[in-house]
Simulated scan of single mutants.
Amino acid sequence: MTERKDELAANLARVEGRIAAACAAAGRPREDVTLIVVTKTYPASDVRILADLGVRQVAENRDQDAAPKAAECTDLPLSWHFVGQLQTNKVRSVVGYADVVQSVDRARLVTALSREAVRAGRELGCLIQVALDAGEQARGERGGVAPGGIGELADLVADAPGLRLGGLMTVAPLTGEYAGRQQAAFERLMDLSTSLRRAHPAATMVSAGMSADLEQAVAAGATHVRVGSAVLGVRPGLG
């Protein structure tokens, strides 16, 4: 356990250094950017170590892994983010532990999240997941609403009982015009965020950037970066 704590502390310090350097290069204060550690596939024991090291925001992408892990960690001062594609039959479980769902991409999901948040007596933060590879209207391969659908979905979230519209999230596209152009993708997301805030001034959160491209996300203006492997190591089973 001591060895693992030392490893995570060193990795966390490296990531912290990268974020600080990226903020300095962009002329932004370090406190402008929040680190969310993606703990998917890693055990609750790692989450405990991270909390001990000062991490306060963690993310998961599969309810069947996240629910038992969150239940083991209810005594920790953590905010849980759900970042994966979310099926409506998992909504009741996710609402039980998640503070923010970053992958809201369709009206039916908004309705289900609202119903369960009200039932649980909770206020749930919601980010609209934007698929920058989806053209103007379709959903993206990895979930997400096309840029042209953001306004309508944002209005739905803002008006839904139990939900709070937090802002936008994206994953850098692997295909299409933004493939290999992460910073351009993140700059496009920032433009979309500016438009969203005209109608919803409190929706200031912009979640973008992961282990490989957090610098580009910070340069573009992201408020939150989601980092997994750079903190926890390469995922088990992924070589």
Rank of each mutant, 00 (worst) to 15 (best):
M1W: 13
T2E: 14
K5E: 15
R18D: 09
I19C: 00
A20I: 09
A21P: 10
C23T: 13
C23R: 06
A25G: 11
A25P: 06
R28A: 12
R28N: 07
R28I: 01
E31W: 01
V33W: 03
V38M: 10
Y42R: 11
A44S: 14
V47P: 03
R48L: 02
R56D: 06
R62Y: 14
Q64S: 13
A66K: 02
K69F: 10
P77V: 09
L78S: 08
W80D: 04
F82S: 01
Q85N: 15
Q87M: 09
S93N: 12
V100Y: 03
V100F: 04
V101E: 00
T111C: 01
L113W: 06
V118A: 12
A120K: 11
G121Y: 08
L124F: 10
C126Y: 07
L127T: 09
L127R: 09
A131K: 04
L132I: 08
G135D: 09
Q137S: 14
E141M: 11
A146W: 02
A146D: 01
P147Y: 02
G151I: 03
V157G: 02
V157K: 06
D159E: 15
G162D: 04
G166T: 00
L168S: 08
D191N: 12
S193L: 13
L196T: 07
R197N: 08
H200P: 08
P201E: 07
M205L: 14
V218I: 14
T223G: 02
T223R: 02
S229H: 09
A230G: 05
A230P: 05
G239T: 09
